[in-house]
Design a protein around this nucleic acid. Structure first.
Lengths: 166, 166
DNA sequence: CCTCGGTAGTTGTTGCGTCAACTTTCCGGT
DNA sequence: ACCGGAAAGTTGACGCAACAACTACCGAGG
């Protein structure tokens, strides 16, 4: 804290405040849409989506926690609720008896399939369709640069495969 | 929902997932830094910062709620806690006896002044200094476009004045 | 003057996330 | 074979936000 404090220029300030506002509003809207259409949190949807893309529709809790940027306690609570709703099933892992595998149930898969289109639609309405193709490309490079700071270990970044997980 | 579902192209998907990841990680980091340095939530900091910029260091609860994108119940609880810590003082409004004015106390002012440099530093480390000037400019236009969708009433957008509120 | 709809805020309850234990299992060293 | 440390999950307690219900007040219309 002994270093001087270079203030933000007006342009930097506008960009910063804009990003903070987006980061505040976007998750709320995603939660709102998913809650309305599927009684799901955005995080719950992410969990189901990750499982739906995994081989055998199953993942270990720690792997799932990493890909969804969640702590293990948080994931444990959420998966318990999803299990109570019959969307996920928990089973001990054969290889490592400390571990637990979360399996997507048929009901869970059906819900993801039914929910994904509306979610994509929301993604378009709120973000993609509001930007030009050039801006979309620029947004990708910008977010990649930011994630280099926000997520140095690259837990959210490396899976650049095409999927509906957003 | 009878409309078809135009899926996201790979490029759109990467930009979308990148933005979602940033929107997930950035608030957590802001909370973390402010919690560590000032025992404040990012939202609490925003409340104090807004008051620090207001004439007479005071604002009506509803005005404060609008500028911080908070519901009135949420703000009421938060201001109560801040009042318990001596950072804010509540006083009935003379003009409208339904209304309450939140006043920043000297201690609250001191805390904002002490906290702002570190917060700006975080803004630089996580965002501004990770981008080129051109990208900063592009980020501003992109966020402005997104806020047109996310915040149609422009509650967060119009105050484009230069300040440390971020 | 009185009433009725709407506005400003507060309070209580519920739900989700975080943190701190705690249990169980794995693995390296002796 | 055994012991200590670390990893994988679960559980319970606490804090904060959302929602609903409630009080108090303003202001227009009869």
């Amino acid at each position: 804290m002994t270093t001087s404090t270079p203030w933000l220029s007006p342009a930097e300030l506008r960009a910063w405040l804009g990003l903070v506002a987006v980061a505040e509003l976007l998750p709320a809207q995603l939660d709102s849409q998913l809650q309305r259409d599927a009684t799901l949190t955005h995080f719950e949807y992410q969990v189901l989506a990750m499982l739906s893309e995994a081989p055998d529709h199953a993942l270990r809790m720690s792997a799932l926690a990493q890909r969804t940027n969640a702590t293990l306690p948080r994931l444990s609570h959420v998966v318990k609720r999803l299990e109570d709703r019959g969307l996920v099933r928990r089973a001990p892992c054969a290889d490592d008896r400390r571990a637990t595998n979360a399996h997507l149930t048929p009901a869970g898969w059906d819900l993801v399939v039914a929910t994904a289109p509306g979610h994509v639609r929301t993604a378009r309405e709120l973000v993609v369709d509001a930007l030009t193709p050039a801006q979309v490309a620029e947004l990708e490079t910008i977010t990649r640069a930011l994630l280099g700071r926000l997520d140095p270990e690259g837990r959210l970044t490396p899976p650049l495969d095409g999927d509906t997980a957003g």
